[in-house]
Design a protein around this nucleic acid. Sequence first.
DNA 1: AATGAATGAGAGTTCATTCAT
DNA 2: GATGAATGAACTCTCATTCAT
Lengths: 213, 213, 213, 213
Amino acid sequence: MVKSLMNEKRLSVARGARREAILGIAREVFSAEGYAAASMSHIASRLGGSKGTLYNYFKSKEELFAAHVQDQCECRVAEAFAPPLVGDDPVDILAGLAERVLTALLADEATAFYSLIVSEAQRNPSVGQAFYESGPSKGIRRVADYLESAQAKGQIASDDCVMAAEEFLGLVQSGLHFKRVLNIIPQPSADEIRAKARRAAETFMRAYAPRPS
Amino acid sequence: MVKSLMNEKRLSVARGARREAILGIAREVFSAEGYAAASMSHIASRLGGSKGTLYNYFKSKEELFAAHVQDQCECRVAEAFAPPLVGDDPVDILAGLAERVLTALLADEATAFYSLIVSEAQRNPSVGQAFYESGPSKGIRRVADYLESAQAKGQIASDDCVMAAEEFLGLVQSGLHFKRVLNIIPQPSADEIRAKARRAAETFMRAYAPRPS
Amino acid sequence: MVKSLMNEKRLSVARGARREAILGIAREVFSAEGYAAASMSHIASRLGGSKGTLYNYFKSKEELFAAHVQDQCECRVAEAFAPPLVGDDPVDILAGLAERVLTALLADEATAFYSLIVSEAQRNPSVGQAFYESGPSKGIRRVADYLESAQAKGQIASDDCVMAAEEFLGLVQSGLHFKRVLNIIPQPSADEIRAKARRAAETFMRAYAPRPS
Amino acid sequence: MVKSLMNEKRLSVARGARREAILGIAREVFSAEGYAAASMSHIASRLGGSKGTLYNYFKSKEELFAAHVQDQCECRVAEAFAPPLVGDDPVDILAGLAERVLTALLADEATAFYSLIVSEAQRNPSVGQAFYESGPSKGIRRVADYLESAQAKGQIASDDCVMAAEEFLGLVQSGLHFKRVLNIIPQPSADEIRAKARRAAETFMRAYAPRPS
DNA sequence: AATGAATGAGAGTTCATTCAT
DNA sequence: GATGAATGAACTCTCATTCAT
């Protein structure tokens, strides 16, 4: 009895590890080649296993892709908005946040993943939905929450903090995300990102600082 | 001689028309299914012709796709930024421009086309380049030109009009383009677009209006 | 009446010239690519005309090929054995003949044509037959005739002059034709050919010179 | 471990057998139709399998053809020259060898294979090279070796044994190989072959027997 | 659970041939 | 007679998926 339990556990652990390995390969392959051009054979051979094994873990290419999307949403997207917003000057706080967002958003893997999502979202809206909710949506909420607290402190003046948050993020990525995703510019350096982040924060605060009456 | 010229012309006209027809089908099919999933057989049958005929006009799928991209870039993207910027109040002018940009940007066909471009740009940077230069790049230039003229009139204050133009467009599409492309929201109504455009123009002008010293 | 006849004649002449032109292109294309790989489109475009025109002259690819084979048999193969056999010493005469045979046999166009024939003869024996009778068969007959005359003069001793002629030609091409046709050696120089021809004649005469009893 | 080894072995045996089967079909189809006209679909259907299976064993038509050529070179061509040369009278020895060469050379499968090689060698010299070295080249070497040993025994007189060997083989096939390959004559009977072989040996020895000085 | 051979539908592409102009 | 657009069958090759071992 005990032994069988341990066996199960061991197997299950091994199974989990194998699954992770497959998802790791899937990430590389889907990112590099896109959904349609990626082949199960290719993934299997990169895995060092057989196609049969692959199909033991994911019963179709579609399912593997879905698992990949979920996996990436969970482990990658969320982190951009995680760090605490500390400090007092709204410009500093927003600039810091913008920097983290840009760093995550403009990384090679992020652009590749984003392209994948955009492409598949046309045929399957739930893909876009899942992605949006796993990260961007939370990010906007978080910025909006901060703006509300800043408004409470009289540091900003905004009628609609959610829209203001979206505007802020629009400023932050302006001119960069677009060009990255079209493969026109390479991943920017940390300095470039920092400069852009600060500029966006300053522009935003000029627009949203309370006016002297 | 005359007859042969007329023949040539007639044939050439017919050929041109057929070519247009093919590009029309190609637009639908590529938009609906993406590059990889679209099949030449499918396009040919929708055309009501044979695959051989298709290949008489475009010698490969790749070439058909390239022609489609160029066609769309020429006839669709450019128009968004074409209309003249008339009026005196910068907010009005910018809001009018934003409205046209958003209308063009958020249309169903535009989103589908954009997704296609983004997806293919990962494997073939020239696709993204061609798209960028056919429209967005000109649009940014146009906004920047206007901002410079406004600055000359003392209506705005900006150190770098190109960056300001990018920020403006970032504000304009903030929260909308992203969600459209992820297939989360439907095409917005004209009223929603107008409201968003005005808000972006106002926010921008709050940030860039000259400060009383 | 007269005019119509002249028209006919003129047309017919023009038609003949066009036909020759087509056969000229066909020769190049079939030689370079083989029957199956040669395409009617390719021939038509090299001709500077349309496929429709091509089909006005030859009603199928097969027929064009047949015409090409016949054309080549008539104009190329026969000449090798044409020149008169003059002189007195059989070695000189045979060496001279061997030289002409080898020159014709080992030329680039001859090897290409031979390969074509061999390949098609498997599916269509009449091709091989036509080729054989247009040239090689006459060549053997001619050598045999000479050998008979030489025998009458007591210069050689042979029970069967046709077989002896075949043996002679076997000696002549030994080691060369085979390697040429397998694309192992390039077209030999005139000197190499002359040496080989003489050696074959000498070997042959050592075998067939009348024995002193 | 043992089981897995056995499995591997079994699978590998089955795989090897299937491969042989495919090569068997390939031989028939390529021989009957030539390289270009043979279709993978046809081969697959004759095999009783699917095209996919075929492509699991040979990753392209070209590769299947190359394997076929190598296979035939190994199993067919080499044997003609293998048997030992025993006896004392050079005429007997050479006649015996000639008989075996002719038997191998004039068989139906050999002619078909030779035509295939000749045809493909025009576009791909390595095909001709591989064929030549797998058989004919060794055959010439073998005859030359014998001639050298005979010369050492004073049985023949030749300045250049390799050329003499080529001449011998030229005599042997004279009039036969050519006509066979052009599909003019059927496979000769064993008696015809024996007679031809003896005649060639006799002619050769008349030319190369040492002369009484 | 793992394997990898087998499958068959379907992809892109080519080509000999036809026919209206 | 010349043209070249149209055709559709056939080609090579790929791939997601299944299944016996």
